[in-house]
């Protein structure tokens, strides 16, 4: 379990993190979504023990991360700007990682060689950006981490490699119960892989939800009310309503069946439950138009 509690971090007076709070359950895959400059990378650098918070707590498995090598030995990270030594090859970096991570598995490293078509004798600097990212994945996954922190991990990877990489990470999650925290500015990217999503903006986590909970608890109904009913009955608990012709589109915070049952009282001519996309769910969760949510989640 990863717990971030009210973390504040100031850079020259500017609060990059302003009371950020989030919880990643053990074995969960947590997607941290937010626009550029929201503080995602800063938060992840705290989680990996690079930065030290000005206030608040950062616990992993109940232990503070700061200067905790025993804990950090069980964590691995892929930063958005992975550093490799100037003349180092993937094999060189592998030896370096192997020296630091006691759980490093050569067996895994050798198996993953096939997954990543990278010449490990080649200087990393000479690899393309996407290949460098793959090399980072290769080494990081070979560390056999219990906690995996990924900052914009699939940026620069082609769709095939994205799938490949996610497939490996998901395999780890299923097999070893790895807890994953992954950041992205693209919610769509995280939809398949995450079971929890947090939305971050201006140094705060605005909300966090489990996806299952989200999908079960919000419904979009298209309803045609009988003649004479032109307005949506005010007693209906509607989050958001819009109308095209006679068709009303209602967003309600409840299960589809319950919503249909409620609407059935007004003997509508037509009731149709339409699935909501994740973007839509977040837009309505965050309160719709009064917040520039579209910028955040799309």
């Amino acid at each position: 379990m990863i717990e971030v509690k009210n973390v504040v971090k100031r850079f020259d007076g500017f609060a990059a993190l302003d009371g950020a709070t989030l919880t990643v359950p053990k074995g969960g895959v947590y997607g941290l979504v937010g626009p550029n400059g929201a503080g995602k990378t800063t938060l992840l650098r705290h989680l990996t023990g690079i930065f030290r918070q000005d206030a608040g707590e950062i616990l992993i498995g109940g232990e503070p991360v700061w200067e905790n090598p025993a804990l950090k030995a069980r964590m691995a990270v892929i930063p958005d700007d992975w550093y490799y030594f100037l003349q180092a090859t993937t094999a060189d970096m592998m030896r370096f990682y192997r020296g630091f991570y006691p759980q490093f598995s050569m067996e895994r490293y050798n198996r993953l060689r096939e997954a990543f078509a990278i010449d490990e004798k080649k200087t990393i600097r000479r690899l393309s950006k996407g290949m460098q990212k793959q090399a980072a994945f290769w080494l990081t996954l070979s560390c056999m981490p219990d906690y995996l922190i990924l900052d914009e991990p699939v940026d620069g990877l082609d769709p095939v490699m994205r799938r490949q990489v996610w497939s490996l990470v998901m395999g780890d999650v299923a097999e070893r119960g790895t807890t994953v925290l992954v950041s992205s500015h693209n919610l769509r990217e995280l939809e398949d892989v995450c079971d929890h999503v947090g939305i971050m903006d201006r140094g705060k986590v605005l909300l966090e939800r489990s996806l299952a909970q989200l999908q079960d608890n919000m419904v979009k109904l298209q309803v045609v009310f009988p003649d004479g009913v032109t307005e949506v009955p005010p007693e209906l608990p509607v989050l958001h309503a819009s109308r095209i012709g006679r068709i009303h589109t209602l967003i309600m915070r409840m299960g589809a069946r319950e919503a249909e049952r409620l609407v059935a009282q007004y003997s509508p001519l037509l009731v149709d439950a339409v699935p909501l996309t994740l973007e839509e769910i977040f837009i309505y969760e965050l309160g719709g138009a009064d917040y520039a949510v579209k910028d955040i989640v799309l």
């Binding site: 799938r163 998901m170 999650v173 299923a174 398949d192 079971d195 299952a212």
Partner: peptide, 18 residues
Amino acid sequence: SVRSLAAELAINPNTIQR
């Protein structure tokens, strides 16, 4: 298995389990 399907589809295993 949930595990192999998760890895194959690159999907969160919890989703498959659901």
